[in-house]
Structures are given as structure tokens and as C-alpha cells.
Design a protein around this nucleic acid. Structure first.
Lengths: 197, 197
DNA sequence: TCACACACAGACAGTTCTGTCTACTGCTAG
DNA sequence: CTAGCAGTAGACAGAACTGTCTGTGTGTGA
């Protein structure tokens, strides 16, 4: 790789931090926060405990980094990006969210919404982790609001709030085992769009 | 109370068990399962730890008893009973669910859906507690299905599944702070009813 | 009055969790 | 060559958790 800074880069080591974050993503997204202990995490990441605590001052801070990563990957990298790619019109892009969900719900490693799970696990909007979860959920609504705006729908704020009920409701229901939850949400979403045209 | 068994009933003591269950209901419903320890629970219930373990062989068994109680009180004693009482027609009774939710969401001690919270907390449908949570959620759908049937709606099973998405989605959103989530679900519910007429 | 069942208080064992600390290793810049 | 830095391995402290056990008190039926 060609040097991007003056001549040589110190760059801590490039590896440990990534391994920690990657493992945290894998474990936290599938099993939740409290079920995953630091010992298991460092063992799985092949990293010394001191290394983890060098990069992240506490488990909570690691969780916050995980949530940030989750937003980057899931909210923007997957939902927004793929929805925009799959829909011809803005309305189609909105509905494409539930087409994505439909595929997601069929996966054997379906993990649900990390923001909802974390928020309910912490259960406290004043706690930094709970607060962050709620904020990231709000950002999801912002994505929906933008699409609604682009589609020229009436009252994009209210639309996004209603739409998000469908998203979260279907995800929870999929976690119960309803594999067709996304199709039901899709149908409801179509009705909601009509109401906001 | 007139004797219902031969002459006298041994009846353990009648008091400790009720205090344990009452306290478990209060604590588990508001704070979740894992955040409430046995020590705190017995102290709050004013009960010896041995007494708790005399009545319930493990914390999991106590949790199962809590969920059962939650269904009795919340699902049947509140949602079904009050919805039936408040609506003139069967369709109104369905919509009345979201009127109830609306009041519920305004409460300062709004605690969310214990079945969803417990299911996500355990995260495993094979675990007895997770399984029970999912079963109790299914029973909620049965209530909805009955009302849909009475209302003469088309495909009551599919209706109940879609309706339940609205219920759970609005509850989760209320937990994030959207106090009007029930009103949005109400509007969507109206549209869904129209589709199933 | 006596016996028994139940409840109470709380010590205790055993595990698990977060977070700290020590000692060792290997790489790299100067 | 050497100093420093980042990482490894794992013991350790301190807290919290579930579940067990001992010992004591008390109300009630026979």
C-alpha cells in the first residue's frame, strides 16, 4: 500500500482493534449484550484482555462502538443502500425495505434489530447505551423520512413514525418465528403510502 | 369462605407465595428478568430466601410463574376484557385495543410488553422461558383472531398476525418515547380492517 | 402440651462477571 | 544495539448472582 501520510505511519498495529470490533459485532448482534462476557469475547477474538481495555475503557464503551458499527453496516450499508438500489421510484424504494426484510427473515442466522434488543435489554433511556440505541433508531426513521420526502408524500415525519412501527413490529414477529412477517408489513406499508399520497 | 374441600384445608400458610409472586410481577415487568436478583426480590417481598426456593425450585420457574400471571392480568384481564367492554361492535373492540394502548403509553410507569422483552432477553425459543414467552404472544393473537372472527373479517389468522405487528411495533416505539404510537397503530389498524372486510 | 409445618434471617459455596495488574514477547525506529 | 511500544497470557480483586444449609421462631391441629 502506498503511503498516505508523510513517509511512514506509526499505526498502532492494525489488527487487534479490528478483531475486537469484528468479534463484538458477531457476538453482540446475535446474542445480545449481557450474555456475552469479556472473557469469551477476548478468547474468541484471540486478543489479550489488557489489549481490549487498552482500546476501550469499559464494556459499555465497546458496546457503544458496536452500535456505531451496526448503524454503519446495517442501517446505512444495508437498509438504505440496498433499498435505494432495488427500487425504481422512491415509493418502490420504501417498499423495497420489506423485500430486504423478507430475505433477511429467511436466513438461519437472523439476528433481529440490535438497537431494539439493546434498548430493551438496558431498559433505560438515560443510560448512555440505551440513549444511543434510541438515537440510532431515530436515525433509521430519518432514512425513511428522506425517502418519503423524495417520494413527495404528505407529512414525512408522521409517515416515518408509522412506517417504523411496521419495521420494528415485523422484526419482532420474525423473531417469534413468523417467516412471512415482512410480507404482511409490505402490504400494510402499501396502504400507509396511499394514505400519505 | 365456605369450605370447598372435606372439612378443613391444610393450605400452606397463604401469604408468602402471594407476596413473592406479587413482588416478582412488579420487578420483572418493569425491569426485566436478568436485572432483578433473587436477593433483591426476597428482601423486597419480605420473605426468606429458603421460602422462595420452597415454592419455586429455581429462578426460571419463578419467571414462568410470572409470565403466567402476566397473561392472566395483562392479556385476559386487561386487553381482552377492556377491549370487549369498550367497543360496541367487534370491529370497535379490535380498535379499542389501541385506545387502551394510548392510555397505557401515557403512564409514567409504562413497562412495555413482558413477553417481548423476556423473549428478546432470553433470545432462545428452545429455552423454556423463551418458549413460554412466544406461546403467550401466540395467545394474544388468539384473542385478536377471535375478535376478527366475531367481526366476520376475512382470513382471521392472517389478520391476527398483521394486527399483532401493529401491537408490538407500537409498544416498542412507545418504549422509545413516541407517546402517539398507539394513535398511529390505530389508523393503520383501521386500514387493515378495511382490507379484511 | 406437644409436634409439626412453615417462615424467617442470614451465612455460605460455587460460579461468573468486569476490570486491573504483572511479567513476558516481538517488532521497529533511531 | 537498544529503547520503547503494542500485544499475549493469565492471575487476581471485588462484586454480584443462584442456590443450599443451619438454626430459630411461631401458629395451629391433635
Amino acid at each position: 500500500m502506498i503511503a498516505t501520510t508523510p513517509t511512514t505511519r506509526p499505526e498502532p498495529k492494525q489488527g487487534a482493534r479490528e478483531r475486537i470490533l469484528g468479534t463484538a459485532y458477531e457476538l453482540f448482534s446475535h446474542r445480545g449484550i449481557h450474555d456475552v462476557g469479556i472473557d469469551e469475547l477476548v478468547k474468541r477474538a484471540g486478543v489479550a484482555k489488557a489489549t481490549l481495555y487498552n482500546h476501550f475503557p469499559s464494556k459499555d464503551e465497546l458496546v457503544l462502538a458496536f452500535l456505531e458499527q451496526r448503524e454503519r453496516i446495517w442501517t446505512y450499508g444495508w437498509v438504505e443502500r440496498e433499498a435505494r438500489r432495488h427500487g425504481a421510484t422512491s415509493e418502490d424504494q420504501l417498499l423495497a425495505i420489506f423485500d430486504l426484510f423478507d430475505e433477511w427473515f429467511q436466513r438461519d442466522d437472523f439476528e433481529g434489530c440490535s438497537f431494539v434488543k439493546t434498548l430493551l435489554e438496558v431498559g433505560d433511556l438515560d443510560h448512555p447505551v440505551g440513549r444511543a440505541s434510541a438515537d440510532y433508531l431515530e436515525n433509521i426513521r430519518s432514512v425513511v423520512r428522506s425517502l418519503a420526502l423524495e417520494a413527495g408524500l404528505r407529512d414525512p415525519d408522521a409517515f416515518a413514525l408509522s412506517w417504523h412501527i411496521l419495521m420494528k413490529g415485523s422484526i419482532v414477529q420474525a423473531a417469534e418465528g413468523d417467516r412471512d412477517a415482512a410480507k404482511r408489513a409490505h402490504a400494510l406499508g402499501r396502504l400507509l403510502i396511499e394514505q400519505h399520497r
